[in-house]
């Protein structure tokens, strides 16, 4: 009589493999940013300048508050001719550096309009993690020299290509943010996080890759158009670390606009005022008629 144990072992192993594959999004990487620490950029209030220069201050931190080691960074700075147009006359600059012990704060100043793509890396719990973000600086000052073009080749770190369905300088709830892994580095599927847990929203598949649409946030809606909240897109990488991408989303600028309701308010006051004016004209005509009769 043949034992059924090998068959059971084979199917249980297959089921486990399928389950792991499903859990890791098909890449074989299971990274849960809710339970595992990752490294991310957090924006700090920037210093204000009286000379027209613009600044951005960022902290490279771990999500679980544990200390980081061997932290370094580089950024790619592209001068802009306007809000959207790259200044072709000025070349892209790569600026790099590393953090000392303790404070992992980086401040970038600019006297020109500058698009900055920033990468950071650090070791957390013995594993190397990467963090990414971007920002726009609208500096208008001669006091800060524009970045020197060049700076060598861009380091080949695991990273995402980022795109949004709206204006890149004003990410909003309701926009679709697409992050596709650059190169073939085995980056897993991302999970959208907030400082306190998973971000509310919807994952969508787009032509450009996996996307995320942050849900409407009542607190943001109440705070004013300039208020924003961070969203961190986090994915695992093959050696057990992670790569994250930080954006700050504002409330939806047009999401609350109701055109039909607006037309109702507009039309009703238009009709109401017209009615009052017609009554006024009629009364005046009657009075004039009475005056002529008498």
């Amino acid at each position: 009589m043949r034992s059924s144990a090998p068959r059971v072992r084979f199917f249980s192993a297959l089921a486990t493999a399928v389950l792991l594959t499903v859990m890791s999004g098909g890449t074989g990487l299971a990274f849960d940013p809710e339970t595992e620490g990752y490294v991310r950029w957090e924006f700090k209030p920037p210093p204000r300048h009286k000379n027209g220069a613009a600044s951005v201050s960022l902290n490279l931190v771990s999500s679980d508050g544990k200390p980081l080691s061997e932290a370094s960074w580089y950024y790619k700075a592209t001068p802009l001719a306007s809000f959207r147009m790259v200044d072709d006359s000025a070349g892209t600059a790569i600026v790099r550096g590393s953090f000392g012990d303790g404070d992992n704060t980086l401040t970038i100043d600019s006297g020109v309009y500058l698009f900055v793509e920033l990468m950071g890396t650090a070791v957390l719990d013995g594993k190397r993690h990467y963090a990414q973000t971007h920002g726009l600086l609208f500096g208008e000052s001669l006091a800060v020299e524009p970045p020197e073009p060049g700076g060598g080749p861009e380091p080949d770190w695991p990273s995402f290509a980022f795109s949004g369905s709206g204006e890149i300088y004003w990410p909003q709830t309701g926009h679709t943010f697409v992050l596709s892994p650059k190169g073939d580095r085995g980056i897993g599927e991302f999970t959208a996080m907030t400082p306190t847990g998973k971000a509310l929203g919807e994952y969508v598949d787009t032509d450009g890759g996996r996307g995320f649409v942050p849900a409407t946030d009542k607190e943001l809606n109440a705070m004013g158009a300039t208020a924003s909240k961070p969203v961190f897109f986090v994915a695992g990488i093959p050696d057990g670390g992670s790569v994250s991408y930080t954006i700050y989303v504002h409330r939806s600028r047009y999401g609350g606009e109701k055109l039909n309701l607006g037309f109702v308010v507009f039309s009703s006051t238009f009709v109401g005022t017209s009615f009052v004016l017609i009554l006024f004209f009629r009364r005046r005509r009657v009075l004039r008629h009475v005056a002529q009769e008498s």
Partner: peptide
């Protein structure tokens, strides 16, 4: 459009549309 994002935007845009009408 009437912006119903919050109470303030609703007041602001409804005033604007009423004034315009």
């Amino acid at each position: 459009a009437l912006d119903v994002t919050n109470l303030v935007t609703t007041i602001v845009t409804s005033t604007s549309l009423a004034v315009t009408g």
